[in-house]
Design a protein around this nucleic acid. Sequence first.
DNA 1: CATGAATGAGCCTTCATTCAT
DNA 2: TATGAATGAAGGCTCATTCAT
Lengths: 195, 195, 195, 195
Amino acid sequence: MAHDEPQRAARSDAQRNLERVLRAAHELFAERGADVTMEEVARHAGVGVGTIYRRFNSKEELLAAVAHAACASTCDSLRAASHATNPIARLKALALVQFHHSAHAPLTHALPPIDAAEPEEVARLLHELLADAIADGQRQHLIRDGDPRLLAAFCLELLSLRTCRRLGNACQADAETLAEEAVRFVLHGLSRVTA
Amino acid sequence: MAHDEPQRAARSDAQRNLERVLRAAHELFAERGADVTMEEVARHAGVGVGTIYRRFNSKEELLAAVAHAACASTCDSLRAASHATNPIARLKALALVQFHHSAHAPLTHALPPIDAAEPEEVARLLHELLADAIADGQRQHLIRDGDPRLLAAFCLELLSLRTCRRLGNACQADAETLAEEAVRFVLHGLSRVTA
Amino acid sequence: MAHDEPQRAARSDAQRNLERVLRAAHELFAERGADVTMEEVARHAGVGVGTIYRRFNSKEELLAAVAHAACASTCDSLRAASHATNPIARLKALALVQFHHSAHAPLTHALPPIDAAEPEEVARLLHELLADAIADGQRQHLIRDGDPRLLAAFCLELLSLRTCRRLGNACQADAETLAEEAVRFVLHGLSRVTA
Amino acid sequence: MAHDEPQRAARSDAQRNLERVLRAAHELFAERGADVTMEEVARHAGVGVGTIYRRFNSKEELLAAVAHAACASTCDSLRAASHATNPIARLKALALVQFHHSAHAPLTHALPPIDAAEPEEVARLLHELLADAIADGQRQHLIRDGDPRLLAAFCLELLSLRTCRRLGNACQADAETLAEEAVRFVLHGLSRVTA
DNA sequence: CATGAATGAGCCTTCATTCAT
DNA sequence: TATGAATGAAGGCTCATTCAT
């Protein structure tokens, strides 16, 4: 037991390094996409490049791992958001998840097709849950008619941080305000036009 | 005049090469952004790298030229689209321009800030014209209330080829159909909800 | 302290590589000027090109560094040579410094104007010290009359390794012998012609 | 005969082009050495690159031709200068030839060893004639003792335009004045020290 | 013959990856 | 196990040379 201490310490050190690497990689890749140097990631994480290559066999693997973590986090949020029973509330909650997930756009965009399965799966799931909510809303006559999958897709598109950034350039509002406006616009777009 | 022939012949050949280079560069940059090799562009155009460098001093200049051409084309379309007097028709026409202009997204995204002025100017103009159309529509009670600039921004975002490509993955329709659906969604979102 | 060893070992290895690079670069640049390939320098130093670029941001910087080292070495020699009190002895010593410094002629010639400040400063200093020695000699009636700056310039010109190499082609003597002959010629040229 | 006219005109045109190319190449190479672009030479000569390649199979050949012309000119001057009977006058005349020949230094410096035979032959001849003059002067007790070949070599070195340019930086005199000073210095260096 | 557009080998430089310490 | 120096393949760019007009 006594001689376990240093090992455990070493292990926790390694664990901490792994986390630092992932955090650093996430920040940089999410901000600037794939054209960030491994050296830069290492520096940002406060380790040497070798330390990264001990855990990840290539830059691609690191990208995939970071994307995986982001997707896992989004999935947690999705599970929580899909519990609401009211279709409109569910729709709002899911939209908010999409809004935050889109913050990693440059990251998922940078993935090579072979590694893009998971982010696409997340997008697929998000889209499915959104379509379900819309279909429910249609059944309850809260939302206008139309292919739910298509309507859901439009909603997703409208609710990305990237979008909000561009709006910030054209208009005069902060991201959060714009997000709310976007949800409102979407809901209006989905609302029934009564007569 | 007769002795002009060879010169003009040489020039027309060069002209054709220039066009091939621009076309090749446009296709590749618009598809995959800036991380396309000059060698690749040259191969795609059926010329050597030197031929490209005879016309463009750097990859950056080539990118800028291609972006310029795309912007000029979009401007032509904008002029044509902004003639419609009916606000809704104008809105549809402008939306279609945006739809096609967005096909170059990775290209304009790849431009260094210094060269991004023109694409941003086009985006600004597109946005302004759309906002004008929306404001007109509001005055004629054809479009619901709300900041025209904000509403216009949402419309733009929704009408990109990129968006349509993603929708193509999730749904079962070709790009043109999706574009029409998107316009319809947007118009519904802008329509007055008559109690 | 014990755990400093590996770091210091790594550092000393790197240090040795740096020295090898500088030595290789010096030899090649001094011999053939700037049109030596970085690959060639690397091969000559027994390293990869990347190793050079780790220390020097560009070929120009490498050139500048090599030139700086050569100038520093010359400055040391100058300090030592300028201590002699006898003007003739001082003149001889300085002439020898010039003789050795001129071995790097193609190197300093290859520097871009922006980096040429230091070599020019060395040349200026050498010239100034030589002119001082000549002026002293004139005051003591050991050297014939004439503008000391001009006479000094002639001396410098006559005392270059490059010159000696050419003499070696035309005559039948080694460089050192020729250097001595050159000093003798110079001194004779500077000597007072006593009617 | 009538139909000879255009041919002769064409031929004289070609002749004129050849001269222009040689003159342009001479000016540029003599000023900046071998790192002048063929395109630059062509532009300077007012022709296309193809016209140069019609006469010279390579840049190297052009360099050699330009060097040949310069050497031939120098040889003419040498022949004229070597007629003087007075050794001192002959020495001065030859020194002046060297002074002007050295104006092409960067050009001859740029020649690859294989083509350097002729310039070296000129240098050899110049050196030989100078040594002869010195030997004559020694026989007539006008010049101090010493190996004539060695003394001649020193004279040559001292009398280059390149030298004069550098002196111009350090002192305050134009090239011609400096040349005269150099000759004076050389003659003083060669003069007999009586007693 | 003249032209100058096209070619492509080769140079400088970057960066993912490896490996000695 | 962590470090960061070393490696070298690959990309941007230049320029001697060729060739269609």
